[in-house]
């Protein structure tokens, strides 16, 4: 952990993320207005009354950004948890069992990778009603392939190590070997992949919102705030600037943390 702490950039990024998480968690405390409150004046420039101005409904952009943080961050977290979970399980199974199971799973990975995934997301999103949970699940289910490959490769290399063979020799059961010996070795790279995946998920959510398929009104996410801002880019640039910069900052911080972790793990 020492090396990570030495990486000042990564530490700074982590503190920014922590701050965002706190703000998101205690949103009602930080937001000066109800994010759904339709006000008297629409498209008002930033002022002391409205730090980030108001949107086309006269709603307070700052309050919406604060509540939006909840959704955007949790979309990132949940989507990544799903993709890591799926990728992890499939990766371990194929790496450990090998043979037919492995080739079936890896062929499936190949198929999923050959899709222009945006199509799959669009199509699935059109089947299900667009809401936050579906957005999370869909992003999760279309982004697990990298993790699966990574985990499988890792399992394959760990499997060859002498202590695993030793465990086999002394008669340890398959699941026991898998969980006690292989799992801990695989976790570190997966965490790194997960952080990067989270950045990707936040961006994907915003792109889905751009196409009108993201989180639904009146809830706010940074992605749909950006989408709403599109029509008013020239009259109310703050509507685009605030969520755009928040997405940028968050994703940037996540990357920096991921990079710090990567160096820490020494890959």
């Amino acid at each position: 952990m020492k090396k990570f702490r030495r990486n000042k950039l990564a530490v700074a990024a982590l503190s920014v993320l922590a701050l965002m998480a706190v703000v998101a968690l205690f949103a009602p405390f930080f937001a000066p207005y109800d994010p759904g409150d339709i006000g008297k004046t629409a498209l008002e420039a930033p002022s002391m009354l409205h730090f980030f101005g108001t949107d086309d409904f006269g709603r307070d952009v700052f309050s919406r950004a604060v509540y939006g943080a909840r959704i955007s961050l949790s979309v990132g977290l949940v989507a990544v948890s799903i993709s890591v979970l799926v990728g992890f399980v499939l990766g371990i199974i194929s790496g450990y069992f090998g043979g037919l199971t492995e080739s079936l799973i890896m062929r499936f990975v190949d198929i999923m990778l050959s899709f222009p995934s945006i199509f799959l997301i669009l199509a699935v999103q059109a089947i299900l009603t667009p809401n936050i949970y579906n957005v999370m699940v869909i992003i999760g289910l279309t982004s697990w392939m990298g993790v699966a490959r990574l985990v499988r490769a890792e399992v394959l290399s760990v499997k060859e190590r002498p202590y695993i063979e030793a465990a086999h020799v002394i008669g340890a059961s398959g699941p026991r070997i898998m969980f006690r010996h292989i799992l801990p070795n695989v976790i570190a790279p997966v965490i790194v992949a997960g952080t990067l995946g989270m950045a990707g998920a936040i961006l994907t959510e915003s792109a889905l919102s751009f196409l009108g398929l993201g989180v639904q009104p009146p809830l706010s996410s940074w992605g749909n705030m950006l989408q709403d801002s599109q029509a008013y880019l020239r009259d109310a640039p703050w509507m685009a600037l605030i969520p755009g910069l928040l997405i940028l900052l968050t994703v940037l911080c996540i990357y920096l943390v991921g990079e710090g972790l990567r160096e820490e793990i020494g890959r």
């Binding site: 759904g36 009104p217 009146p218």
Partner: peptide, 13 residues
């Protein structure tokens, strides 16, 4: 349809 989506949000309110 942005206009109708907006109308829904305002009517809700």
């Amino acid at each position: 349809n942005k206009e109708r989506e907006k109308a829904a949000v305002i009517l809700q309110w």
